[in-house]
Amino acid sequence: MIENIGMGFIILGILFDFFGVLGLVRLPDVYNRLQAATKCVTFGSAGILFGTFLMKGFTSFGFKALLGIAFIFLTSPVAAHVIARASHRSGIPLAKETTIDRYKEDNEGEK
């Protein structure tokens, strides 16, 4: 029973991984790609690791999976944030659908 639930989590995770990567290919500029990819791939990989934990229980195998979940939830938003800030400061343009850019308005004096 618990193995089937774990396998369900793994399949859900792979589905969201796939959506995230599809977003990385389809969306128009860096920031949108970063959004789709970060959210979906983080959730998907966490789902796979949680399924692994459910299938293996409280052994060293399971604890490694739990540590991995904590790790990607801490690091992946930070990496996304750093990449977004660096690409905005280095002047990579936003997509042509963009409606408003408050960050540029406020930082024009500094450069």
Binding site: G13, R33, A37, T38, S45, I48, L49, S76, A80, I83
Partner: peptide, 13 residues
């Protein structure tokens, strides 16, 4: 850079 970062998370799965 975004793609390489995402590849790292994908590889864990």
């Amino acid at each position: 850079i975004v793609a390489v970062d995402i590849l790292g998370v994908l590889i864990i799965g």
